[in-house]
Design a protein around this nucleic acid. Structure first.
Lengths: 122, 122
DNA sequence: TTTTAGAATTAGAATTGTTCTAAAATTATT
DNA sequence: AATAATTTTAGAACAATTCTAATTCTAAAA
């Protein structure tokens, strides 16, 4: 665990929401102005490989990084783009049962309109 | 519906599996050697917008295109990369119930090892 | 302390997948 | 046939990410 790696981990853990590599890079720069984008990508990759964070893919967006490493689901507002976490109980087991094979992991992104965006439409 | 668009749609509908834009481009070239990549992207985008095909995002892979336009789930083998379809009944309604809001669509990619890859590991 | 070896970091080039642009070709309309 | 609208093309541009090779840091050994 190097200084940069732990700095990035701190940033991700302190973040109120799922950040892109670029946002993490900008945040890291405030404390270590010389840091390079490649260092950010290197360390994010390492942190993902070590299982300390998770990488998120949302259609049409850059990858985001999630401090929450438990299996969980994502709710994406198609109005404002905001992403929030959901937690379905025993979902992995449920999926394994449904497909009749051991599902090791999954990504579930659900799209909807959040309350704010629903109101704006009226 | 132009000639190229319908050619691409035919290719996707005839495909035994989910193809990338590049694979579709190569297949289209056999029947129309001069076709440009931009035409493929243009028409794939149009077909997706018209709801005639669906676009798929799998982590770490280029987008793929799916002839099956019903909401369904994907099972990705982490051994060979093969993607297969699943169909859970009333899943969208189930998700809406779970999150307490109207989910309009979702992507669910489940990872596992297919029977072949499981056997190879023994 | 210096030396050394290995790992981490850097800057920037390269790559990938995709979109954009402007001109040319095709198709449909008058 | 003339005009307009649409589609296609080739290639440039782009964004996100990965790679590369030189440099710097770190920490253990001499």
């Amino acid at each position: 665990m190097t200084k940069n790696k732990s700095l990035l981990l701190d940033i991700i853990r302190a973040a109120p929401r799922h950040m892109t590599a670029e946002q993490i890079f900008l945040a890291a720069k405030e404390q270590r102005p010389g840091i390079a984008m490649a260092t950010v990508y290197n360390n994010l990759g390492a942190l993902v490989a070590e299982g300390l964070i998770r990488r998120l893919h949302i259609v049409g967006q850059a990858d985001r990084y999630d401090r929450n490493i438990d299996q969980h689901e994502h709710l994406v507002c198609d109005g404002c783009g905001r992403i929030s976490d959901e937690k379905f109980e025993d979902f992995l087991a449920e999926l394994s049962k449904q497909v009749g094979a051991a599902v090791s992991s999954y990504e579930l992104n659900m799209h909807y309109l959040c309350a704010d965006c629903r109101n704006d439409q009226l």
